[in-house]
C-alpha cells in the first residue's frame, strides 16, 4: 500500500469516528430529560385512569354488600315502612317507576322517531331541521329538575294533583332529545344505495322510510331507546314535584305515585337503620334496572355493526 492511500484511509477513519461521535444514539436513555418526563406523565395517566375507575367499583361493592343483604321477596313487594317499623319494602316504588317510565316511553319514542325521520330523511338540510337538531342537543344538557318545574306549571297546577301522568310526561321531555338524536344518527347511517334502490322501484318516500330505512336502522334506533329508558329510570329530579311519592300501590294514573329514585332520596336522610338499608336495597334494584337496559342497548348496537 502506498503512502497516499494510507493517508486517505486514516483521514476517512478519523472522519467516520467524528461522525460516530456526533450521531445521536437511536436508543433513548430512560433517564434522559425528555424520556423521563414522558415516563412520568405516562405513570400519572395510568394513576388517573385507575383512580377514575375506583368510584364505580366502590359504588357497586357498596350496593351488593349493603343492598344485597337486604334484598328479599318481602323488600321487592311490601309497602314502605313507617318511621319506627322494621321490615317493609318498596314494591309500590318499583311499580311506580315502571309505569312512569312506560308512559314516558309511549310518548317520547313515537314522537322522537317521527321527528328523526324528518331530520334524517325528509329534509335534513332545511332550516327547521337545523334548528330542531340544535335544540335537541341543547335539551340533552337541560337540567332535569327544570323538566319537573315545567310539568309542575303545566300539568300539576291545572290538574290540581301530583300524578303518575305528570311524572311520565316530565320523563318524556327528558327522553325525547336522546331518542331523536340516536334515531336520526341510525337512519342517516342507512346506505344511500338502499334508499336509491327503493326509490328506483317507484316507492313513495313513506314506503322507503317504513320498509327500508326503519327496518335497516332498527337496531340503532332501539339502542337509543334503551339508553333513553335507562336514563329516565334513574332520573329522579323531575319526579320530585310531579309524581311526588306515595306509601301505597298505584291505583290510578292521576294520583301521587312512588318511584325508586324518590324513595332512595327520602330514605337516605332518615335517621333509622331500617330505612337506610332499604335505600341501599332500592339503589341496587334501580342500578340493576338501569344497567340491564344499558347492556341491552350495547348488545343490540353490537349485533349490526
Amino acid at each position: 500500500m502506498s503512502a497516499p492511500d494510507l493517508a486517505v484511509e486514516s483521514n476517512l477513519r478519523a472522519l467516520s469516528q467524528q461522525a460516530d461521535r456526533r450521531r445521536p444514539s437511536l436508543q433513548r436513555a430512560p433517564l434522559e430529560g425528555r424520556a423521563l418526563r414522558s415516563g412520568i406523565l405516562t405513570g400519572l395517566t395510568w394513576i388517573a385512569a385507575l383512580l377514575a375507575a375506583v368510584p364505580l367499583f366502590s359504588v357497586i361493592y357498596m350496593l351488593f354488600v349493603e343492598g344485597g343483604s337486604r334484598l328479599s321477596w318481602e323488600t321487592l313487594t311490601a309497602l314502605p315502612p313507617s318511621a319506627f317499623d322494621l321490615g317493609g319494602g318498596f314494591g309500590n316504588a318499583i311499580v311506580g317507576t315502571v309505569v312512569m317510565v312506560g308512559i314516558a316511553t309511549l310518548i317520547s319514542v313515537p314522537l322522537g322517531i317521527l321527528a328523526a325521520v324528518y331530520l334524517a330523511i325528509l329534509e335534513p338540510d332545511s332550516r327547521l331541521a337545523d334548528t330542531v337538531r340544535f335544540l335537541a342537543k341543547v335539551l340533552t344538557g337541560f337540567p332535569s329538575i327544570l323538566a319537573g318545574v315545567f310539568v309542575y306549571a303545566v300539568m300539576v297546577v291545572t290538574m290540581k294533583t301530583y300524578s303518575a301522568l305528570a311524572g311520565g310526561v316530565a320523563l318524556a321531555v327528558l327522553m325525547l332529545p336522546t331518542v331523536v338524536l340516536a334515531a336520526e344518527q341510525a337512519m342517516a347511517m342507512v346506505p344511500k344505495k338502499m334508499k336509491d334502490a327503493a326509490y328506483g322501484m317507484g316507492c313513495t318516500r313513506t314506503q322507503v322510510i317504513l320498509k327500508v330505512v326503519l327496518p335497516t336502522g332498527a337496531s340503532g334506533i332501539l339502542t337509543g331507546v334503551m339508553l333513553a329508558i335507562a336514563g329516565a329510570a334513574g332520573n329522579s329530579a323531575p319526579l320530585l314535584f310531579t309524581a311526588l311519592f306515595s306509601d301505597y300501590y298505584l291505583s290510578s294514573l292521576t294520583e301521587p305515585t312512588a318511584s325508586l329514585a324518590i324513595l332512595i332520596f327520602n330514605f337516605s336522610g332518615m335517621p333509622y337503620d331500617n330505612q337506610i338499608q332499604l335505600a341501599w336495597a332500592a339503589s341496587l334494584v334501580l342500578v340493576l334496572i338501569v344497567l340491564a337496559f344499558n347492556i341491552l342497548a350495547r348488545l343490540i348496537g353490537r349485533q349490526k355493526y
Binding site: 377514575a52 375507575a53 368510584p55 364505580l56 366502590s58 359504588v59 357498596m62 350496593l63 349493603e66 335507562a230 329510570a233 334513574g234 332520573n235 329522579s236 329530579a237 329514585a261 332512595i264 332520596f265 337516605s268 337506610i276 335505600a279 341501599w280 339503589s283 334501580l286 342500578v287 338501569v290 344497567l291 344499558n294
Partner: peptide, 18 residues
C-alpha cells in the same frame, strides 16, 4: 367509564353520604 354515567344521581348521593 360509560357505566359510570349510567349510575343514577341519587345512588351517587347515597354513596356520598355513607
Amino acid at each position: 367509564i360509560e357505566l359510570l354515567a349510567a349510575i343514577p344521581s341519587v345512588v351517587f348521593g347515597l354513596w356520598g353520604i355513607y
